[in-house]
């Protein structure tokens, strides 16, 4: 299962189970705020080789109709995808 954002974050002690265990893949915050540059995919140049998807440390690049797309909620803007892209389909742009 891919971890996903939940609507509610437990805030009080009574909302936390007594056992030292919790539901897996329970996300309450995004990582988007870490980024000051963002990768942008040029779909015309993308050949769907998936090297960016493979080498992304955060797993935010996913297959999308023979090409790839990015989950900007969790991309940290490290730039590895741009380096891995042999066709130059990924450019890093400044966040505004």
């Amino acid at each position: 299962m891919k971890p996903y954002l939940r609507e509610k974050a437990p805030k009080t002690l009574s909302e936390i189970l007594e056992a030292p265990a919790y539901e897996s893949g329970y996300l309450v915050t995004k990582n988007a705020g870490w980024r000051n540059i963002r990768p942008v995919i040029n779909a015309d140049k993308c050949v769907g080789c998936l090297q960016c998807y493979l080498y992304c440390p955060d797993g935010v690049i996913y297959k999308d109709g023979g090409k790839v797309a990015i989950d900007y909620d969790f991309c940290k803007g490290c730039g590895i995808c741009k380096k891995m892209c042999k066709t130059g389909a990924i450019e890093m742009e400044a966040e505004k």
């Binding site: 299962m1 891919k2 971890p3 996300l27 915050t29 090297q51 440390p57 797993g59 996913y62 940290k76």
Partner: peptide, 27 residues
Amino acid sequence: AKTLNEDEFFYGHKACAGCGGSLAVRI
């Protein structure tokens, strides 16, 4: 890369940008 399980099991983590360790765990 093409046949790899599309599901992600290590996602939304707080590793530094460009972390090699998180890439190893994820893959």
